[in-house]
Simulated scan of single mutants.
Amino acid sequence: MSTVIGVLRKRFLAPSLASVGFAERGFPVTPTDATARLEAVPQAVVCGFEWAIEGAPLWEMERRLALIEPEQRGFAYEGATMGYTILDVMPGGGRDRTRELLEGPARPHIFLTYIGIGFAMARLPRPLWKNVLPELTGVAYHPTMSWLAVDGYGFDRAYFDTRRWVDEQAEPVPYPWAGRPEYFARAFDQGLGRALWFINGGDPAAVAAAVERFAEPRRADLWSGVGLASTFAGGADRAGLARLRRSAGEYYPELALGVVFAVKGRTYSGHVPAHTHLAAGVLTDLSVQELRAVSDRTEAADGDDTGELPLYELWRERIRSEFRPVARRAAS
């Protein structure tokens, strides 16, 4: 049940559905049925955020989110996590809303909830970032996959401040996430790559051109984000996906890496939409089941995280290596 304070928080903090739409953001997107499905993603995030920022209790949040169609439900959990994170870390918060959400009903959507934490980071002063990631008990892939919070931060900045982060190609100030400030910009770019898919309405040619405008050292991480978004969120038909695969060129292993992570997230949530099956086959020649097997056998989600690279990036590298022979055959 909403309180007066909760309603005021919603009024001043929650964006409107129109404000996250492609036209309102000024994105060069021609409206189609496919782009409407893409626009539904940020709208679902807004719904989850509105309910959470009002202070709805966990019991009520779970039942509201269950009303969202399965394809979009994980995105609504992103928004809910964003709202709870802001409430928890603001002065006077003093609650464990986010932890209870992630250890409870949001567990199947754990990958997306990390992204929701990143959305909250984009709206919080950096000194508060040290408090955004809760200590979770019994939750798989924690804290290894918490780098998706930085990915979410990158997505948010590109989506809502496109001129600076996409047009001007600004680079983020490093932050010692998980004690590794040197990896922060890479995880940020992975989220920025996901945003490019939305900003360009899932148009493969426009997305590829957008990636190409960035400096070469940034393109690999951008392409992995494109692969994840195109597979998880959809937006392109078979011909468009085939064109996207050709456009990736030497970055094909990165594109395929994103596909694998998207499949992992979808299968872990228990709902795999038709567009994910389509993208899996066109972009990698493998089925969803085969790509999940790739994810499982390369998994680096536990163990000592004090090596040269985060366990998160070690997992990514193992997946890339699975697709490098395919890239070499295509180039020969």
Rank of each mutant, 00 (worst) to 15 (best):
2 S>E: 04
7 V>W: 11
13 L>V: 11
18 A>Y: 15
20 V>G: 14
30 T>R: 15
33 D>M: 08
35 T>Q: 13
36 A>R: 15
40 A>F: 03
43 Q>G: 07
45 V>H: 13
47 C>E: 08
48 G>N: 09
78 E>W: 00
78 E>K: 03
83 G>D: 00
86 I>Y: 00
86 I>M: 13
94 G>W: 01
95 R>D: 02
96 D>K: 08
97 R>P: 00
98 T>L: 14
111 F>D: 14
120 A>C: 01
127 P>V: 08
131 N>H: 15
132 V>N: 06
133 L>P: 05
133 L>E: 15
134 P>I: 05
140 A>K: 13
140 A>S: 13
141 Y>W: 12
142 H>N: 14
142 H>P: 01
144 T>R: 10
149 A>C: 06
150 V>M: 12
150 V>T: 12
153 Y>E: 13
155 F>Y: 15
157 R>D: 09
160 F>A: 04
162 T>R: 14
163 R>I: 03
165 W>P: 05
165 W>L: 10
166 V>G: 09
171 E>M: 12
175 Y>A: 15
178 A>Q: 15
181 P>N: 12
186 R>Y: 11
186 R>Q: 12
186 R>F: 07
192 L>P: 02
211 V>N: 01
217 P>F: 06
221 D>N: 13
225 G>S: 08
226 V>Q: 06
228 L>R: 10
230 S>C: 08
235 G>D: 05
235 G>S: 04
235 G>W: 01
237 D>C: 00
238 R>Y: 05
239 A>G: 00
241 L>V: 01
249 G>T: 09
251 Y>L: 12
251 Y>N: 14
251 Y>C: 07
263 V>Y: 12
264 K>N: 14
264 K>A: 15
268 Y>L: 13
272 V>I: 14
280 A>L: 03
282 V>T: 12
288 V>S: 12
291 L>T: 03
293 A>D: 04
298 T>D: 04
298 T>C: 15
300 A>Y: 02
303 G>F: 05
307 G>N: 09
308 E>D: 05
315 W>C: 02
318 R>H: 07
326 V>L: 09
329 R>Y: 01
331 A>M: 04
